[in-house]
């Protein structure tokens, strides 16, 4: 079973539905210790970075311990942002620090002024092969809705551009994350989720690899 972490940040209905559509069984852990029963963990999220506040030391420790024990992690939207060091949206609230850098507000750069939130379908650039985007075309479009974005880092496997280039997806070892909403991105989104779920089997044999 995959643990879908519900920390009260909006609605898990769509993520559940998408995972059901690809035959992935999920449960919602009620405490950090419950993650031990999971084969993998999804940190969803939508909205404000401050919503990650309930993911306290207990949850953070359980996720780190899970990684050490070979349990993969997938972040979605704010989940991706939380995997970085933090966000300018809520300074002082640390992320999990799996990827370096702080998320910054979109649309603050030079003109032309951009509408924020960045809402809608935007295209991906895939700088290298990755597990998540296996079989997905370069330039494929996915659905975004967010005001803050994570920087492009070494582990960025999909780049999107909205005024500035940002990490649309990152992948390193057992950790994957997407800024867009795969559960709202039609067939491309389902493909990305399916790739991640299929990858869980392979990853078990390389547990702990970072």
């Amino acid at each position: 079973m995959i643990a879908l972490v519900d920390y009260g940040a909006g609605n898990l209905t769509s993520v559940r539905k998408a995972l059901a559509a690809i035959d992935a069984a999920v449960f919602t852990p009620d405490r950090p210790g419950a993650l031990e029963a999971a084969r993998a963990v999804i940190v969803p999220g939508v909205g404000h970075f401050a919503a990650t506040r309930p993911l306290d030391e207990g949850w953070r420790a359980a996720m780190h311990a899970g990684l050490a024990a070979g349990r993969p992690l997938l972040g979605i939207c704010v989940g991706l942002q939380w995997f970085f060091d933090g966000s300018a949206e809520e300074p002082g609230l640390p992320g999990l620090g799996l990827f370096p850098g702080v998320c910054t507000r979109l649309g603050t750069g030079t003109p032309p002024a951009l509408k924020v939130p960045h809402v809608g379908w935007n295209s991906l650039t895939l700088p290298r092969a990755s597990r998540l985007f296996d079989g997905v075309a370069n330039d494929a479009q996915v659905y975004f809705t967010h005001s803050y974005a994570a920087p492009v880092v070494t582990d960025t496997v999909a780049i999107c551009e909205y005024g500035v280039p940002f990490s649309a997806a990152v992948e390193r070892g057992l950790v994957s994350a997407v800024q867009f909403h795969p559960e709202k991105s039609g067939d491309v989104g389902l493909r990305v989720l399916k790739n991640w779920v299929q990858g869980l089997t392979d990853q078990r044999t390389t547990a702990g690899a970072r």
């Binding site: 909006g10 609605n11 939508v46 909205g47 404000h48 919503a51 939130p117 967010h146 005001s147």
Partner: peptide, 8 residues
Amino acid sequence: AQRYGSQA
């Protein structure tokens, strides 16, 4: 907006 985010 505070509960669900502006995008909602």
